[in-house]
Design a protein around this nucleic acid. Structure first.
Lengths: 346, 346
DNA sequence: AAGGGGTCGTTAAACGTTTAAATCGTTATA
DNA sequence: TATAACGATTTAAACGTTTAACGACCCCTT
């Protein structure tokens, strides 16, 4: 029906070549074409509602001005928020963003990366899943620009933006110790992903530093596939028996949300019975009956820098990889205040 | 450096024409080329890590297999959730999703639509802003497939997926009336957008139906630009004076979140002093000290149907526009239980 | 010996741009 | 008066695919 109008249509109507039209419509103000012809062409272009076909431009230029964003789940507020920041920063550089959710699944992640690579995105921002080292290596070998966010593989030298997870977990745990807790648990994902390992390591370091002999049972591991149930199971284990903990560090917002629900339902009193600190941010932390202390990641900076590093790499594929490790901030609230009485669940 | 390999490269190496390579690599199993040549080509393709250039395909076929998603703000959980559903459903139809946030700003929305149209997306899913009728008309005139979600313009005959906002607000308000409230307020956005008008109208209908003469002061209008402050101002007004309300309906999750924070800080007791119902979903509703009754939109169905309708339209641009109006469900919880004592703030 | 079919592959055009190089008048310069 | 220079526009190739149409070759019939 209503075919889109192309340079050719304009050229035909104006009685000139498509080259002339292209020069007029793409060049700023100069370059060879007479005022008369220029104006005529511009007029016709407007009449026909000409809109340049970006696909054709991309084919010819080899640039799509599109960034691929791959996260675990775009509906997770953590990633949704980052996505928004990336969108805004990308726009400043004239890029659009095409996204995909990997669900922490390496195969999905691989498929997404390939799909978007075929679509010739100019670069990727990726929160990689476990077991995707090979795919990341491949991107690197193919010289496709990308930046990892949130997680990375320390053995692969790549661009990366994230926080110092060890330090963040260390600080959070230290806070719990400082307010009088000596039995402290952590609930984390059961994954080899480095950021998660670092959070656990930071937790352990803090215990060790304060001469607390941590128990293995204090570390609750949760699989991505069955979060709700496994968080509850882990909480049960942490809060039971003679070594029951009096404080818990949740390694992500999702883990915390489930944990807090459990706490609420079991009638456990925070901070009297249990101190709590969580990673990330959530409405849940504000609205929980006792405002939850949390480890706030500098999302804005992370998103912006990721885009900057990526555009930098697109501009210069040869420059050395850059790892940007930011500090997270512990926002202290009531959920980890000192308390005298500590009652393990019987 | 590492140029991507094209059909031409494979053709050269195999000593055949690019056409042959194309036939082998794109056709399923048949069509003309001998086993030997086929295998040779496939082998070389694998060796050279051939990946088809989707941009070139798109130029030639006129299809990008990309959908444009334009929402108010991808970091709003409501839209982030829908985005995820759309992503998944789109994938089933082999589409990827490129997104943009309009911030309820018509100019931004227009720019986004044009940008993505230039990128030749095969269709749009749009939560339109106010004052974007013209742009929507334009899309229609240009025969670019699109589906509106969440909001639409009743005067423009377009595909649309949303809920019956009048009915939803009517039901929610009726619930508040049914539990003994007769002074009921609503906090909504100050916008001409139809969905918001409908929510207000539904609220009014319910009052009228129950012979309650609503006060204008019971309707708090909030501008998109200054939500936090204006919600607080509106709440102040609703809760003051002889006509102070004993119940509030929040027209969106964001409005509710700010309102609930205000309630919490002012020490107002829900549901004793104030009943509350909110549209949408939020962690805030679960974690607020009194679980909040909410109007749950069928997001999954909305997202899925939007994609289905869109792909349907892409396939057949001539078919009549389809409006899918779904029912929202009031999920009753404690925040709107009957209560005897009602104390306006003095 | 001429024609009819297959089989396997190539040619060439097309999609909508960009852009270096060529062309063609004019006009100024030597 | 040749020629150089300039200004305005066109030609043509290129980006990486797809695909209709064609051609070459071989085998079979009649």
């Amino acid at each position: 029906m209503n075919k889109k109008t192309s340079l050719k249509d304009i050229a035909k109507k104006a009685g000139v070549s498509t080259a002339t039209v292209s020069y007029v419509l793409s060049k700023k103000e100069n370059s060879g074409i007479s005022k008369q012809v220029s104006q005529k062409i511009r007029k016709i272009a407007k009449e026909l509602h000409y809109r340049p076909n970006q696909i054709a431009k991309s084919l010819q230029s080899g640039k799509t001005f599109t960034l691929g964003l791959i996260v675990a789940d775009i509906s997770n507020p953590f990633f949704a928020h980052i996505a928004r920041i990336i969108e805004d920063e990308a726009k400043k550089h004239r890029y659009s963003v095409i996204f995909g959710s990997s669900d922490e699944n390496a195969a999905k992640s691989r498929d997404l990366i390939r799909l978007l690579a075929n679509r010739q995105v100019d670069g990727f921002i990726i929160a990689p899943t476990k077991d995707s080292q090979k795919e990341i290596q491949l991107l690197k070998k193919q010289n496709i620009p990308f930046v990892l966010i949130d997680r990375h593989f320390p053995k692969i030298d790549t661009d990366y933006v994230g926080i110092d997870n060890h330090k963040a977990a260390y600080n959070a745990t230290s806070r719990l110790i400082g307010t009088g807790n000596s039995k402290i648990g952590i609930i984390a994902y059961s994954t080899s992903l480095h950021h998660m390992q670092e959070r656990i390591r930071g937790y352990r370091s803090a215990l060790k530093e304060h001469d607390i002999a941590g128990e293995d049972t204090w570390i609750g591991k949760v699989d991505f596939l069955n979060v709700k149930e496994e968080v509850r199971g882990a909480m049960d284990r942490l809060l039971r028996g003679p070594q029951a903990v009096t404080a818990i560090l949740f390694a992500t917002n999702t883990l915390a949300a489930h944990g807090l629900k459990y706490i609420k339902e079991s009638g456990i009193q925070v901070p009297e019975d249990l101190s709590v600190i969580a990673f990330d941010e959530s409405d849940a932390f504000d609205f929980f009956y006792c405002p939850v202390t949390y480890v706030k990641q500098p999302l804005t900076k992370m998103g912006r820098e990721a885009v900057k590093i990526l555009t930098g790499r697109i501009a210069d594929p040869e420059k050395p990889a850059q790892q940007l490790i930011l500090d997270a901030k512990v926002i202290v609230r009531k959920s980890c205040e000192t308390s005298a009485t500590r009652l393990p669940i019987s």
